[in-house]
Every structure is written in C-alpha cells, then in structure tokens.
Amino acid sequence: MAEMHQIRLQIGPAAFRIASAWRQPLDQLAALYRDYPGPSDHMVDFTVRLEPDKPWRRYIRPSVHIGGDFWLPDAAPLPLAQGLLAAEMGMNLQMALGWRRHLLLHASSVEKDGRALIMTGLSGSGKSTLSAMLAQKGWRFMGDEFALLDLDTGDIAPFPRLISLKNQAIRAMQTVAPADRFGPEMTDTPKGDIRHLVPPKAAIDRMGEPARPALLLFPRFGHDPELRDMGQAEIFVRLTQASTNYVALGEAGFRALTRFVDQVPTRAMDYQSIEQAEELIERLWSRSP
C-alpha cells in the first residue's frame, strides 16, 4: 500500500497523529500549528487518516475521505483544496467519539483571572466568533469547539485548536487579528466559507492550565439584546444535547453535568452585534462571584 505522510500534534490534553496520502494538508497544518509543542515520545491518543475516496481520487479531482481510529460510516469526502478542514474535522471526530477523560461540551471557552466563561449554542449562535473576539481583548482563549469538563474537579481544560471562522466572521476577525495568523481561505465548504485563525500565543503556551467555570452563556445572534434566566432543567437538557459523550460516560457524565448545572451561573444572551455582546458579557462578568 502507498506510504502516507504524517504529522503529530498536541492540543490541550490530547495528542493526534494525522496521516495523509497528500503532503499539502500536512504542510498547512505544520505551518498553522508551528507554535504548538509536539507530543512527547511520539505517543498519540488518536490517529486521523486522510485518504483518497477511491484509489484514482489520489490524482484525478483528488477527494479526501476522513477516516481514523474513530469514524462515521456516512462522512462525505471533501476536495483536496479543503484538506486542512478535513484534518480538523477528523480531529474533532476522534474527540467526539473517543475521548472519555472529560465530559465534552460543544462550546467555546475563554478565561480571565483563573475563571472560565463558557458559551454554547447551535451552529450560527456566534460562540466561536465571540471567543475569538474576546481573545483579542484581554481574555485567554481556551477553545472554540469543545469545552472539556473535568469529571473529578469540575474545572474546564483548554482545547485551543485553530479557531474555525465562518463566512462574515472572517472579515470581522481580519480587522483585529494579525494577518500572519490566518490559514488559507476555503470557499464553498459544506459549512460555507471557512478560514482558520491561530489562537494567540498565550492561549497556546498555557494550554495545560485549566480554569474554574464561572459563567455559562447561551448566545443567540440576531435578536434584540437581552439577558434571560433559564431553568435548571432546561440548562441540563440543552447541555446533554450539546455534549458528544454524555451518554458514553454513563454515571460519571451525569454526576459531572449535574454538579456543573448546580454551580455555574447561566444566562441566555440575545445580541445583534459583537459590541453589544461584549457589553453584556462585561456587565455580567463584573457582577459574577
């Protein structure tokens, strides 16, 4: 069988091996993850494989099938030009299906003074953009995809992968983040236009440092600015839906999540612009214990 190229990456507590039939996605990964330390001793938790969908798809209209230790039977292949996205999706998939050392919440998180703000919501809620924006304004970026809730301590562990900016968020971030921290622009992906942004250096240097969860927000973009209380039952159910491994963790997941809901102040937040959201967040944060 044809040899594959490979690269190893350490992101927060997890280490990955990305093997690819083509060099290009790995060269892009190597450039964007240049500030990240590699995993010690070459040991990894997961392997992601990027392979031709059919043998001839290595050369002719190359298309990338996302595989690896954990995989989904019906994952659609991506064109090679989106190989970087395929690698990122492959890493997400390994975490979502295979990681059991934390409860995974589909959420972004940022930290200040040792305390974490967690933002969760459906795709399009703006949680990723908000975390990237706050990271430019004195907050430490901890992750825009998964917040890792420690099953024993209740802390949030950072998982600061590349920030995945979509559509309008790309322009918004280009006005505030340095140009040399952006990846290639990928147009017409299944999720629209995507461009990756390397998190600030501090986020990478401190990716081993957990933080105490202090505030949980359910942002919703496109509505008049408002903060609302939510009932614990609703919060709990929505978090079970936002978790990829809640069921797989059994009782340990239930205990961690009920404690989280009991202890962390939570609001639903509607907003129409980043500035509005920042203002609402600062107001809540200054009052939070």
């Binding site: 995993p39 040991m43 938790d45 059991r100 059994g250």
Partner: peptide, 21 residues
C-alpha cells in the same frame, strides 16, 4: 505502560464497561 498509553487503555476499559452494561 507509559502514562499516555495507560490513559488510552483506561478509556477503552471504561467504554467497554458501559458496552457490557
């Protein structure tokens, strides 16, 4: 077994305990 690999194996034990149940 090295620490990281022990953690990977422990994950597998946890996953299979649940599968058994």
């Amino acid at each position: 077994v090295p620490d990281r690999m022990r953690a990977v194996l422990q994950d597998a034990i946890g996953a299979h305990d649940l599968a058994r149940q």
